[in-house]
Design a protein around this nucleic acid. Structure first.
Lengths: 267, 267
DNA sequence: CGTTGCGTTGAATAAGGTCAAATAGAGTGG
DNA sequence: CCACTCTATTTGACCTTATTCAACGCAACG
């Protein structure tokens, strides 16, 4: 965040694609034409390129060349849309929701910078989820056909992508565990710990952060009603585990919060 | 199952790898040496090769060459084991479970013939689940490094594998939906409909089948206690939706069962 | 023929959902 | 800057659902 980088020195190394650079270049356009650049992106440790060599990284720069800005509340894609691209979040925050036939909606995941969205569409060639921005956001567009093409030329990329998909599977299994076996307060504790860890991995404070989503959205994700979420927050606050002021969260007792998860055998 | 096939005519086309052939060849060994053969396997429409051309199929035969027999109750792999291979179920039935720190265990999925297990291990290079056979089973061993190698030479295979992974993600999201928003009877109805559909896709009766798992395992999968599962079964039977005799299930009123799912808005 | 594991059923209990009311902020227009 | 509105959140009272605890039935098996 605070580190500055040298400007490009060769044609291959385009100007560092920092946010500010693009904001001015495409203030009112939806699709930004200014080049994205994996090799200089500060997210490359958590994003798709994770683990790739410098050479492969440069090759990626040619693959990921468009960015798109999504305003808070807007959809990046919707269930049923034909699948063409994956999206790597450059900045901002998203939720993805499943829409059930009978009108029920459930939040399937929250996504933050560096995470890839859209992998649900590969199998059916249509998106199965709605992806909605919870704050003004920017994503890198990864045309899937190009990714597959590039993967066949770069073993490392193919492997990295397989890993990303696999991790998504494991992540979902963790959520299944949460939904299947945990009680309300355990779920919320798990949720906060998970957010904390992801913020930390991105260089933000793991102890203090803003929730981008409403209680209702948290509840939908955790399989709880918003009132239950609210009560659980209150209970945590009373127990001195966290301080809650609207969407501002501060974790006061991390070990205590961790004990909250899986506590029920200790009773 | 009942169809017979011609014996091999070229070195490339090895003997058809039907179950009976192997049983005698390796009665008491765990790892069968008799060749597996995707191109003649009757599961290739539901398994990994789904959508591949004849040429690519033959190429797969060289990739998938070992089989392994797992007795009922035994583990194919366990959480923590180093990840080396994927497994395609040739015959039999498995459950995969997540083991939580505090001793809680949850069934993450049930797997039947043609389904691929082990994809959870790609990201971490260790398995994250236990895979346990619920009946005597046979799996095809797919060495992952070989699969990646072959994928880089065959675009079709790479694409097919991406699709398999993606479908696994979507499947898990469906389970999350089930766990997050459905009531006990809805969950069980969904579960039965899902099994029914999968049996049908494999050429078995969609209306009558044997459950390979206990009520406890069903409950674990659905996020319910075994008593609740039992009560839901009883309720279905009383409502004339299904006939339940221990593990033998007959669906008597398919539309009614479907109405059961997502009924709660109709009330 | 008792043992063992699995399944069913009933009654009591607890957890979370529902409904309703009060409160707090954020944003808006005057 | 203030009043107003709208929405998100909190909290309480009550209700529904699933869990817990316990007893019993049934089938397979040695």
């Amino acid at each position: 965040m605070g580190t500055t980088r040298l400007a490009a020195v060769t044609p291959i190394h385009r100007a560092p694609a920092l946010h500010a650079a693009c904001v001015s270049a495409s203030a009112n356009t939806n699709v930004a034409k200014c080049p994205t650049n994996c090799s200089t992106c500060n997210l490359h440790e958590v994003c798709l390129p994770c683990g790739l060599s410098g050479l492969e990284l440069e090759r990626l720069d040619n693959l990921v060349y468009t960015r798109k800005r999504i305003k808070r509340g807007e959809s990046l894609y919707q269930a049923g849309d034909p699948f063409k691209s994956l999206y790597a979040i450059r900045s901002g925050f998203f939720k993805t929701c499943i829409l059930h036939d009978d009108g029920r909606e459930q939040v399937a995941a929250f996504h933050m910078a560096g995470e890839i969205m859209g992998m649900d569409g590969i199998g059916t060639e249509h998106h199965n989820l709605n992806a909605v921005a919870l704050e003004d956001s920017e994503v890198c567009v990864i045309v899937f056909a190009s990714l597959e093409q590039a993967s066949s030329e770069m073993r490392g990329l193919q492997h990295a992508f397989n890993k990303v998909m696999s991790r998504e599977i494991v992540r979902n299994q963790g959520v299944m565990m949460l939904l299947g076996t945990m009680r309300a307060e355990e779920r919320l504790a798990m949720f906060l710990l998970n957010l904390s860890q992801r913020f930390m991995a991105r260089g933000y404070s793991p102890l203090e952060f803003h929730l981008r989503m409403t209680r209702d959205e948290i509840g939908s994700y955790l399989g709880l009603k918003l009132e239950t979420v609210s009560r659980a927050f209150s209970s945590f606050q009373q127990g001195g585990l966290v301080s809650v002021q609207q969407k501002h969260i501060r974790i006061l007792d991390m070990p205590g919060l961790k004990r909250m998860v899986g506590q029920h055998l200790a009773n």
